[in-house]
């Protein structure tokens, strides 16, 4: 719009000079300029209302520091082509307020669909929101443009850290750990459905009442010999290294066939959360949940909060990881985690 105003001002000045000097050629030039501006404005208005844009990420998961491709689909219902389009795409972590802006250029055929491809390379692992923030539509000369702000259609992108496998030895005590308590026939609790729960344990009556799938648990869930505490407190989420370390520890325990709980404090739920990790699928599903967890920077004793919530639980080994990537095993600081053998 600034260019329109500047050009209009220039043409007005030209017209004024033409009148002062009684120059017909300058008058013609000024009117030609005004006509060009009007034609460009009408063209841009037509394109603005006849085009639809949508962003898609064909493969919504990439490894850390690998490029991710996105596609911007342009649906042009007008009979005129669009020679120049500029897209500002924003890629931000789901818990952050701002992110990286990427400009992509493209064009669109008349009365058809066009795809413009772009790439982004997030360096920090996490869950990202990708969306088009603004679109600049240029006229046929490329001089004038208007800016359009499409609705915030967010596409998700997951950047996965690459786990390292640490040396883990599972002790006999952990291998034969049961940790079960309670009578099988006794109703222990009714809780919301989680991925991996058996369909046969759905409590249909409660589910119908609450309009949410609920599970009937007949006894206390089997305990795990190892509990991995993730402390998000102290500062804003460290991102990459913290996730990579947490994932690597959990991955190593899974590879050693040691089921374990991962525990963290959820700011959204205002409560201690835990997830049981028995296989690789559980591990990555947990990681997706952690990507969406916000942090308020507050320091909390999550071990104490966990003990308060799960009083009957007991375990053999606890592993504590904080945002500074310090690892404490049963309260003892373990340095150079990659080089030591974890005995659980």
């Amino acid at each position: 719009m600034l260019r329109f105003l500047f050009f209009a001002g220039a043409m007005a000045a030209l017209l004024y000079i033409a009148v002062i000097y009684a120059s017909n050629s300058l008058v013609i030039l000024a009117f030609a300029g005004i006509l060009l501006m009007a034609a460009a404005f009408l063209y841009l208005l037509l394109i603005r209302f006849c085009t639809r844009f949508s962003l898609e990420i064909p493969i919504s998961m990439v490894q850390q520091e690998m490029p991710a491709e996105f596609e911007i689909k342009i649906e042009n219902k007008s009979i005129l082509p669009v020679v120049k389009l500029k897209f500002q795409t924003v890629c931000k972590l789901s818990i952050e307020k701002s992110g990286k802006k990427i400009w992509t250029q493209g064009a669109a055929d008349a009365y058809g669909n066009t795809i413009v491809k772009g790439k982004l390379t997030p360096y920090v692992s996490g869950g990202y929101h990708v969306y088009i923030k603004k679109i600049k539509i240029y006229d046929l000369t490329g001089i004038f443009s208007i800016t359009r702000y499409p609705g915030k259609e967010i596409s998700r992108l997951y950047v996965m850290p690459e786990p390292e496998e640490y040396a883990v030895t599972v002790s006999e005590a952990s291998r034969h750990f049961t940790g079960e308590s309670g009578d099988d026939a006794e109703l222990f609790q009714i809780r919301p459905f989680r991925d991996g729960d058996r369909l046969q344990s759905i409590h249909w009556k409660m589910s119908a009442k609450t309009d949410e799938l609920m599970i009937r648990e007949n006894h206390a869930s089997a305990g795990c010999p190892v509990v991995l505490f993730l402390d998000f407190g102290g500062k804003k989420k460290g991102g990459g290294n913290f996730y990579a370390l947490a994932l690597s520890l959990s991955y190593s325990l899974t590879a050693a066939k040691c089921p374990h709980y991962v525990v963290w404090y959820s700011v959204t739920e205002q409560d201690i959360m835990r997830a049981k990790v028995e296989n690789e699928e559980c591990l990555y599903q947990l990681l997706l949940r952690l990507f969406d967890e916000e942090t308020d920077g507050a320091n909390r004793d999550i071990r104490m909060l966990y003990c308060e919530k799960y009083r009957t639980d007991y375990w053999i080994t606890d592993i504590f990881v904080n945002q500074n990537c310090n690892v404490l095993i049963n309260g003892n600081l373990t340095e150079r985690i990659k080089e030591v053998e974890l005995i659980v």
Binding site: P58, I59, L288
Partner: peptide, 17 residues
């Protein structure tokens, strides 16, 4: 693989790429 399945990556998208 597990990572792709959990994040609902489609087979068609992977093969097209």
């Amino acid at each position: 693989n597990t990572k792709a399945r959990v994040t609902h990556v489609s087979t068609e998208a992977v093969l097209n790429k």
